[in-house]
Write a protein that binds this DNA or RNA. Structure first.
Lengths: 226, 226
DNA sequence: AGAGTCTGGATTGTCAGACAATCTGACCAG
DNA sequence: CTGGTCAGATTGTCTGACAATCCAGACTCT
């Protein structure tokens, strides 16, 4: 039963709880750039706008806070998290720890998990070729990185990785589209997977470090420029 | 201001929000073994028992669920998480990834963070010598492990590590005291720190892997025996 | 006029009570 | 003994309310 719940979770969003729907709507608005960082999220306003009650909104907000997408100040409510350089650096640091663990687990990973990485890469590359939207490319890009962590086969590490890329997604949304050369990104990923498929785990690990470091710098630059 | 809030957070628990106090009380009851794994946590019962309202309890329960200490099944409420072998293995796996990252960061860590590890070790050893209670030893033991992750200087990695040991604490509480030889544990930790202080990072990393693997086996054994 | 103080409105934190939807378990019919 | 139905219990959500706190602007005093 539990694998069903997991597998169909995206399809069952229809009758997910109201709280989850509200949280999802808020996330979407944040990723879509409809609310700027630091914007206070007023409970009553959201409740009226979405046609739900205030307690429901409160629960959804608590969810966002626990995900790091928003911050709560006592008696002052919650507001959209504002990405700062320290946060970007820390997230990328964490990503290297987690994704690095995935890369190092390449040899012990099951064939399914390895082909999952390849599948995500292909999906991303195809999207790039087809000139998909910035938003979609971004999601696919991050999905690839999460699939690296999937090589460990650890649900907790994957959950942590997912939380990290979600935080990053917010930062990217705020920074108004770090539209770096998508082809370079795809090629870089391709190189990483090729190293893995050649069984050069150490090389892939080192490559990943450079890749993530580059990503951090790019975001930091965009952040400073905004 | 923010560093004050962080530094004094433990002292300010007195006038923390009601929700946090409820969540804390529930955690305490779980760690104290007052509720068994799988026990349903009824909202109304808790609300009456603690003299708070049901929405408040709901928020506290949501907090526990997001920490992995409890699970929520739709329309069936939340109940205390039941530790299973896969969970223990996964937590220990994650711990190795995070604490390993801490160990590998030894050379780049600030002197304060390194002495923090030493301080936690001394504290633990002293408590063992003084024959502290099982509960206290357990907390100090886990605090030492978290301080290893602190070597990375990454607040997110530390938060993840804290969440992991909290989950483990629950498992240990349920398993009715894995009262392994506390002296061996302390000695093992001492050996690890000595390796680090001799700058043998690789050796310490390998040692940590064995240490965590042993810990997992011990807990699994106790779990199976219960 | 400038600086400190006070008050009103807005917002959160928390509570009480209520209702429909769903689940559980027991009772009853075949 | 098996299967269906029903009552009780519990959750998910809503409405409405109130005290505590915070912010902004007016007000007073020098």
């Amino acid at each position: 039963m539990s694998e069903q719940a997991g597998r169909y979770s995206t399809l069952r969003l229809e009758h997910a709880s109201t709280v989850d729907r509200v949280a999802g709507e808020l996330r979407r608005a944040m990723f879509e750039g409809e609310v700027e960082s630091g914007t206070p999220l007023r409970e009553l306003a959201i409740a009226e706008q979405l046609g739900v009650s205030r307690p429901t909104v409160r629960e959804a907000l608590a969810q966002l806070v626990s995900e790091g997408l928003a911050t709560r100040e006592p008696n002052r409510g919650v507001s959209v998290a504002t990405p700062d350089p320290a946060m970007v650096r820390d997230v990328c640091r964490c990503r290297f720890v987690l994704e690095g663990a995935g890369v190092l687990a390449w040899r012990d990973a099951t064939p399914e998990r390895r082909s999952e990485v390849r599948a995500r890469l292909d999906e991303y590359v195809r999207a790039v070729d087809e000139g998909a939207s910035y938003r979609d490319l971004n999601d696919l890009h991050l999905a690839f990185h999460v699939s690296l962590v999937g090589l460990t086969g650890s649900p907790r590490l994957m959950a942590m990785a997912q939380a990290l890329v979600t935080e990053l997604k917010l930062a990217l949304a705020q920074v108004d589209r770090v539209r770096r050369n998508a082809h370079d990104q795809a090629r870089s990923h391709e190189a990483l997977v090729l190293l893995l498929e050649k069984d050069d785990v150490a090389g892939a690990h080192a490559f990943l470090e450079g890749h993530l470091s580059d990503a951090a710098e790019a975001i930091l630059g965009a952040l400073g420029a905004s």
